[in-house]
């Protein structure tokens, strides 16, 4: 494997047919998203409006950032099981300090992002499996959050809550933020030359190292970026819920992984798509909404959500099999 050319741009379409299949593979979550929206609009035409989109996608903003944080880690071939607990901790810090003592809050964020970077260093230096290290960290984040805020409470600073309920022109805030995040991710990860190196560090670290890059440095930087994105997820979530809760977001861990894979990522490392991840996160957050619009009986809802996830993921796997 090591002498193979860096398989960084993993997909190189050789003929038009597989090019089409490749496009479909990336486009599948987008198609699933459109189908779900079409069903919701046919049930409730009133939802097809600025206000409708605002309510439908409001709660997907933090999930988009959490999924992008997860994508950074998956890009390196690792997985982050502490993502959801970390977001919960950020909501606690935000609700406790950001309003009255912004300096303390900022310091906490910096320390936590540094801790994330340190995690990357630890995983790299000791060659530890990320799944174990981050699973352990998830309990540490939760523990700190419960010490800081034993019962749900606190309040988001007024400006943060106001920002999250701001209604900008043209599109709801959630769509703007998702689009901007996707664009920024696309430019940095998928288009820039540094992005190629980043993905290469996950796909074929030895080749990247031979080319003169510091894989340690890359890993630390990518983990710090993941921490920063998870901070953004916690901040936006606090703005939406207006309070802190240590147990608010454990579901983000696996929904984030689901969004990355749905959006064309792979656990092997080096293969991720920021645009796909953002669309995947929107799709997953809409899956729950779809069920409440369809009025699925409550006892079936949990299972039905799993079925939707399974169908979309299975569709993607089938397409990637064909494309090979």
């Amino acid at each position: 494997m090591s002498d193979a050319p860096a398989r960084v741009p993993a997909r190189s379409p050789s003929n038009p047919r597989s090019a089409l299949l490749n496009a479909m593979q990336v486009g599948l979550p987008a198609i699933a998203l459109l189908v779900m929206l079409a069903i919701i609009f046919s049930i409730r035409p009133a939802a097809m409006s600025y206000f409708g989109f605002h309510l439908l996608f409001k709660l997907s903003v933090p999930l988009v950032f959490a999924a992008l944080a997860q994508m950074m880690v998956i890009m390196l071939g690792d997985i982050d099981l502490s993502n959801g607990a970390f977001v919960g901790l950020i909501t606690c810090i935000t609700a406790l300090y950001l309003g009255d003592a912004p300096a303390i809050a900022a310091l906490c964020y910096l320390v936590l992002i540094a801790a994330y970077a340190g995690l990357g260093l630890l995983i790299h230096a000791r060659q530890l499996p990320s799944i174990i290290v981050t699973l352990g960290m998830s309990f540490i984040w939760l523990g700190i959050a419960v010490i800081l805020l034993p019962a749900p409470g606190g309040s988001a600073p007024a400006w943060l809550a106001a920002f999250m309920s701001w209604q900008p022109p043209l599109m709801p805030l959630s769509i703007w933020l998702a689009a901007l995040a996707a664009l920024a991710g696309h430019l940095v990860i998928s288009r820039s030359s540094y992005g190629v190196v980043l993905r290469g560090a996950g796909g074929n670290p030895r080749a990247v190292q031979r080319a003169g890059w510091s894989v340690v440095g890359i890993r630390v930087a990518v983990y710090a970026a993941a921490g920063l994105l998870a901070c953004l997820a916690g901040l936006t979530l606090t703005g939406l819920t207006t309070s802190g809760d240590a147990n608010v977001a454990p579901a983000y861990t696996l929904l984030g992984v689901g969004a990355v894979i749905l959006g064309g990522g792979a656990f092997t490392g080096g293969v991720v798509s920021p645009v796909g991840t953002v669309v995947g996160a929107l799709t997953l957050s809409l899956a729950g909404s779809l069920l409440s619009f369809l009025q699925v009986p409550p006892t079936w809802q949990i299972g039905a959500q799993g079925v939707i996830l399974f169908l979309v993921l299975a569709g993607r796997v089938l397409l990637s099999e064909r494309a090979r």
Binding site: L59, D245, A251, Y252
Partner: peptide, 11 residues
Amino acid sequence: SVTEQASQIEN
């Protein structure tokens, strides 16, 4: 899942 319940209320 509290976040899911919040989005269900929005729905």
